[in-house]
Amino acid sequence: MQQRPAELSVLIPPNSAKELSKSHRARSVGIGRAHAKAILLGEHAVVYGAPALALPIPQLTATASAGWSPHSPDGPRDMSLTMTGSASRPMVTQASESLRRLTAEFRATTGVSDRLHLDMIIDCAIPPGRGLGSSAACARAVVLALADLFDRQVSRTTVFDLVQTAENVTHGRASGVDAMAVGAAAPLLFRAGETQELPVGCEGLFIIADSGVEGRTKDAVSLLREGFLRHPGSQESFVRKASQLTDEARHLLAAGRPEEFGSRLTDYHALLRTAGLSIDRIDMLVEAALAAGGLGAKMTGGGMGGCIIALTRSWQASEVTRKLHEAGAVQTWVLPLRGLADDAS
């Protein structure tokens, strides 16, 4: 049973400076933050070398607090984890394993030799299993909290590598898109491990709708891989089509052609649905967004549940949102394109 915040033990620094590494003095508490993300196009294909487009979702955040525990380590474990927000018990168990691995890697990478027990508290407003980067955001927040706690300067590359350590435990083979996007200030083009800011020349709104069904990324990845093995040539066809749609979409987004950009979103959803990666609830939300006047809509993330993302003109957003809730969306969020364009400039 999770502790309520009021029941958490007070975080205190070690009693003796001798317990700290000689070259650094640690703070009593370190804080780190990250945010959610959404994939516009490129899911799954990005693992096979195709490009992907990703958006930051700044209103959904994860904050980590790292401090010293007054208790001794319990056997080989040297970190305690408490998660607040909507995390389920299985998610906390899974996160505990990946973040413990991340913490050990952080110590090794940054030369922290102290073996003092740590208390890690994560407050995550990003719903898990929805393709919004919850696990990557928590991991990034933890890396930054540890860097703050131990007074270490960590490069962008080091942060990425450490987040990937946790993501590979959580999801298996992680593409790296989430690890990059949860720290981005602007939309990104991700290709072959490299990123660049994505120009946005359109006006309108992205609406993200939560189906209420937890996605199963590992199952979706396995399903797609098995399909590729059963049907020779299908992997090349899938990656080629995904790359074409993604490349076209990024140019249309930059050129200010929202209707054509929206059609690429819908076409990409059809590609994922044909591969068996969607579910009825997701398809219903996509159809509801389009029927209400949306310019395009698709699932976002690993699939088998999770969220959809729809593009709409600003004056149609209320109707699209209403229809999404009528079709079963449990919550929605809005990202204005103008704001994204300003951030990217």
Rank of each mutant, 00 (worst) to 15 (best):
M83T: 02
L41F: 01
S222A: 15
Q331C: 05
V46P: 00
F206C: 06
Q3S: 12
A26S: 15
E105D: 10
G201I: 02
A174T: 03
G293M: 03
R173S: 06
V320A: 11
A26D: 11
A255T: 00
L146F: 04
A186I: 01
E236S: 11
I308F: 06
L188N: 02
G301D: 08
H231V: 12
P258Q: 05
Q316N: 14
V47Y: 10
L253S: 08
G328L: 12
H44I: 01
A45W: 09
V177M: 11
S211G: 06
Q153R: 15
V320L: 10
E167Y: 07
L337K: 03
G129H: 02
R107Q: 09
G183S: 08
N168W: 05
T165S: 13
P14M: 01
S135L: 10
R140I: 05
R225P: 03
A64H: 08
A275D: 02
A270F: 00
T312F: 03
D74C: 05
S80N: 08
D151Q: 15
G262R: 10
A125T: 07
E97R: 15
Q331W: 07
F160Y: 15
R33V: 05
S65N: 05
C202H: 05
L277Y: 04
I282E: 00
G67E: 08
A344G: 12
L116S: 08
T246H: 10
V159R: 14
S243D: 11
A26E: 06
K298L: 03
V200L: 08
L229M: 14
R257T: 03
R25F: 08
D148M: 08
R281F: 00
A139L: 10
R313Q: 15
T157S: 14
S28D: 09
G303N: 09
M299L: 15
S98I: 02
A52D: 03
P187H: 09
R4P: 00
D343S: 12
F160T: 08
A249K: 14
P258Y: 01
G32L: 04
T332S: 14
F261L: 09
A174C: 11
F261N: 05
T246G: 11
T321K: 07
H231F: 04
E259R: 14
Q2W: 01
M284N: 06
I31E: 14
R264D: 02
R313V: 04
L149Q: 13
H24V: 10
H44M: 13
Q244K: 04
Q3M: 12
G328F: 10
E259Q: 12
M284Q: 09
I39W: 04
L277N: 01
P232F: 14
R27H: 12
K323F: 02
L20E: 14
A36N: 09
S23M: 13
Q331M: 11
A64K: 07
R191W: 05
P187D: 07
S88R: 07
Q153K: 15
A181F: 13
R101V: 05
E97L: 14
L265A: 03
S86F: 03
G42V: 10
G339S: 13
V10P: 14
V330C: 12
L271V: 03
Q331P: 00
S96G: 05
L102G: 11
H269Y: 00
T84P: 00
R264S: 06
P58L: 06
G85T: 02
A292T: 03
L189N: 04
R4M: 13
A181N: 09
K22A: 07
D119Y: 01
Q153P: 11
H117T: 03
I309V: 15
